[in-house]
Each structure stands twice: as C-alpha cells, then as structure tokens.
Simulated scan of single mutants.
Amino acid sequence: MAKIGIYGSSFDPVTNVHLWTASTIAHRCKLDKVIFLPCSNRRKDKDMKTEDKHRWHMLKLAIADNATFIADDYEMHQNAWNVYTYQTMEYFKKQFPGDDLYFIMGADLLVDIGNGEWKYSEQLIESNKFIVMARGGIDMMKTIAHSPLLRNNDDGSRFHLVDKGLSMEISSTYIREEFSRGGEPRYLLPESCYEYIKKEGLYR
C-alpha cells in the first residue's frame, strides 16, 4: 500500500515554497508520492492570472527532476463551477484503489471546512484523511476542538498536523507582483519556471 498526498493549488506560478513544502511533508509523513493538482482557471472563486497551459507547463518543469512528485491535470478538465474537493478525492480513490490517500492543506482551509464553508464538508471530512500545515499562527488543535464536525471525526488518524518549522510564506501573488513591477524574484521559484516566464512574457 502506497501513501499518496494530494496537493492542490493554483500554482500561478509554482514557487520554491510549494516544492519545499511538498518535500518536507513527503519526508515527515513518509509519503511515496505527492500529486500536484492545479485548479482550472475557470474557477469562479479565484482571480486567475495565467492560462492553464502556462501553469501546467511550469509545474511540469518544476517537478521534472523529482520522482516523488507527480502532476495531474484532472481539475483543469472539469467544469470549474461543479468540481469540489470531495469529488476530487473520490476520483483519486478510484485511481489508486488500496492506497492510502491524504488531502494536503493549510490550517486556514481547516478552519473553513470546520465552519462548514466548503461544499460537501461533512462527506469530505468523514471519508478522507488530511495532512494539515501550520499557517498564520492558527492553533490547529483548537480549531479541531472548536468544530463539532472536525472533533467528532478526529479518530487519531484523520488529521496529521505538520508544523514545517520555518515560516516561509513567499506567495505566488508576491512573485507575480514582482514581475509586473519590474522586480527580480528569480530565486523564489525554480530557474526553469523563471526562464519560462521571461520567455513567454507572463505577469507583465
């Protein structure tokens, strides 16, 4: 049985922090694979700056030299207004029957799910396991304790809480802003992605 983490984000662009986070989680949680899952640029809840084809190409460049990392474009091909994390996890469970799957997310998303702000929150929590990364000073244990949905499904294996140990919060937004303002974010993202952005004139 393999242990697989599902790591969803816009990756607009993928950053060195994304890669470092995935590598840290894979190491600490003994994951065999981390699946990078970029969302569609048709999502109504995100103001996407880049076409899917560019984000997909940069992601493939970024993870090319790491056999633990896999890119999957499943959500890019869905109707963005109808795809939810619960459905995505059901899809991957069918793709990897018998394997142990975890949804990787930040503590801020744990708060949102615990408050019932996600579609199919109950089904998602009841039928999946989660790796939750510390973020923004959020008390993850208190978040679980204060949510009836989370605490009543906390069987000791439902939530794997991870404090990365370093506060590295350089965001894709910051990198886009640097490119647009003539800044130099070269060492905040993979060199191959930096060169691709310059070549294609992205984020101007």
Rank of each mutant, 00 (worst) to 15 (best):
L19Q: 04
G183Y: 00
K60V: 07
Y91N: 10
D112W: 00
N82E: 14
E191L: 15
M58P: 03
F179W: 05
S157D: 12
F103N: 03
P185Q: 03
Y203Q: 09
Y102G: 05
N152F: 01
K60T: 12
H146A: 15
I144M: 07
G98E: 04
P190T: 08
F159A: 11
K44Q: 14
L61S: 10
N115P: 02
F130E: 08
C39H: 00
K198D: 00
R43N: 15
D154Q: 03
M141Y: 07
I4E: 12
R28F: 04
I6F: 09
N41A: 08
T143R: 04
W118T: 05
F130S: 05
G136A: 15
K44R: 10
Y91K: 11
K164E: 04
A2Q: 09
R186Y: 10
W20D: 06
K46M: 03
V34I: 15
Y196V: 08
E51P: 02
N41T: 06
N115I: 00
R204N: 08
S121P: 02
K93S: 10
I70E: 14
V132N: 07
L109H: 10
S157L: 09
K44G: 06
P185S: 06
G5H: 10
G106L: 01
R42H: 12
S40Y: 08
R158T: 15
L61Q: 15
D52Q: 08
S180Q: 13
T143H: 11
S147F: 08
E51F: 07
S10V: 09
S9F: 09
G182Q: 07
G182A: 06
C29Q: 12
S40I: 01
V162I: 14
R158F: 07
Q123K: 13
A26W: 02
D163M: 12
K46I: 05
W20V: 00
K46H: 15
N153K: 02
S147C: 07
A22K: 03
K142V: 04
L110Q: 03
D72K: 04
G106M: 01
F179I: 05
R55V: 07
A64T: 06
S147A: 09
M76H: 05
E184Y: 13
H57W: 09
M133A: 08
R181V: 00
K198S: 01
D65A: 14
S157M: 10
S121Y: 07
H27F: 09
